[in-house]
Design a binder for these strands. Structure first.
Lengths: 207, 207
DNA sequence: AGACAATATGAGCCATCGCTCGCAAAGTCA
DNA sequence: TGACTTTGCGAGCGATGGCTCATATTGTCT
C-alpha cells in the first residue's frame, strides 16, 4: 500500500475554475518565498496571498512542502529546458566551444529567476521531503556525461562518470556562487573573464 | 545607536557556574541540530536538553539564531584551525604538492563533524541573521590568495583574486558534494582518485 | 553576618501554525 | 428543473512557538 508522499498534490483539478485556484496557489507560494522567505511562508499566508481560502488550499495540497515542491518542479522544468536546449545546440561542437557555451548558459540559467533560485538554493531544508534538487542534478550529470561520451576521442583516458561529476559540480559552483554572492565578478566586462576562466578550468582538466 | 544584532550573546558569564550553563546550552544546541534538525530546534527544547531553564537561556542568548550562531562559530573555529595549519604546513611547497595536500585537507575538514556540517550546510537559512558562513569563506579566499602570491612565478599571468575564487570554490564544491551526496566516490580506493582529479583540475588551471 | 549582584527558575502570555469540518456556492448532467 | 458533484469557504481547535517576569537561589565582598 504505497502511501503517497506528502509532497504530492492531493487531487486533480478538473474544472476550469479549480485550475485557476491551483495556479493562484503556486504563484502565491513563489511570490511569498521570494518576498518573505521560506520560514514566513505559512499555509495561511499563502492562501491569503492567493485570494483563496485555507480550506481550498488543503483540497489540493496536503502541506506547505507540497506547495513548495510544486514551485520547485515548475522552476526546474524551466531550467531543464534551457539546459537541454543548450546541450542540443552544442552536441556537434568540439570541447572548447561546447564548454564555453555551457558555462555561459549556466550563468544565464542562474539568472532566470535569480531571487527564486536564491531562496530555493539557500533557504530550503534539503533533507527530508524536499530532496528533489538532488535528482535534478543527477539528470544534469547524465546529460553531460552523454556529451563527453560522444567526444571521447578528444579526451584523455578517464572515468567519464567521475569526469562529469567534476566538471558539472565545478561549473555549477562557480556560476552559482558568482551570481549569488559575488555580483562584483559579474558586472559588465568581468563576466566574460569568468567565462574564460571557467572554460579553461574544465577544458584543460578534460584533455 | 548601533543596535546590537540579534545573533550576539546577551551578556558575559563571569562566574564558573554560568559558564557551565552557557556551555551546556551550546552543546545542547549542537546535539539537537544534529539529531533533530534546524526546524525542531526550539528554544524550549534546547533549554530542556541542556538541563537549564528557559529563563536562563534567555539570560545569555536573545534568540534561537543566536544559539545557532554560537554553534557555527565554534565549528568554524575548528575548521579554520585545520585550514590554517594545513596552509602553514604547505607554505613552502610547489603548487602541485601544495594543492594535493589542500584537497586532502578539504576532505578531512568536511569529515570533522560531518553530521553537524551537513545540518549547517543544508538546513540553515543562509540569508538574514545567519550569514556568517559568507565571511568564513572570504577568509579562506584570502589565505589561498596569499599562498598564490608567494608562488606567483610558477603561475601564468592571471588576476590572483579571481584565481583564488575559482580554485577555492571548485575544491570546496567538489569535496563538499562528494562527502555529503556521493559516498560512493569516497569509498576506499576512489577517494585517492578524487584527490587526483581535483588536484589536476586546479593545477592545470593555474599554470 | 549582612548587603548586593549574579544567576537560575518555570508558569504562563500571546502569537502563530497546520489543519479540519460543516456548510454554501457554482458547475454538470439528465 | 432537480439531483448530484465539484469547488470554495473560513471560524476555530489543539499544538507549539518565542519569550517575559516575578521570584528564588547562589555567590561575592566587606
Amino acid at each position: 500500500m504505497a502511501r503517497r508522499p506528502l509532497t504530492n498534490p492531493r487531487k486533480q483539478a478538473s474544472q476550469e475554475r479549480s485550475r485557476a485556484t491551483v495556479d493562484a496557489l503556486i504563484e502565491a507560494t513563489a511570490r511569498i518565498l521570494v518576498r518573505d522567505g521560506f520560514d514566513k511562508a505559512s499555509t495561511n499566508r499563502i492562501a491569503e496571498q492567493a485570494g483563496v481560502s485555507i480550506g481550498s488550499l488543503y483540497q489540493y495540497y496536503p502541506s506547505k512542502e507540497a506547495l513548495v515542491a510544486a514551485v520547485i518542479d515548475r522552476h526546474n522544468r524551466g531550467l531543464m529546458q534551457v539546459v537541454q536546449g543548450a546541450l542540443a545546440e552544442v552536441a556537434g561542437l568540439p570541447i572548447e566551444k561546447a564548454v564555453r557555451k555551457m558555462v555561459a548558459i549556466a550563468i544565464d540559467a542562474h539568472r532566470l529567476d535569480p531571487k527564486l533560485h536564491r531562496v530555493l538554493a539557500e533557504q530550503l531544508p534539503r533533507t527530508g521531503r524536499l530532496a528533489k534538487l538532488e535528482t535534478f542534478n543527477r539528470e544534469i550529470y547524465a546529460l553531460f556525461k552523454a556529451y563527453l561520451e560522444s567526444r571521447r576521442d578528444e579526451l584523455r583516458t578517464v572515468d567519464l562518470e567521475l569526469a562529469a561529476f567534476v566538471c558539472v559540480t565545478s561549473i555549477e559552483a562557480l556560476t552559482h556562487t558568482a551570481v549569488l554572492h559575488r555580483p562584483d565578478i559579474l558586472s559588465g566586462e568581468t563576466v566574460a573573464t569568468l567565462v574564460d576562466e571557467a572554460t579553461r578550468l574544465v577544458v584543460r582538466y578534460l584533455r
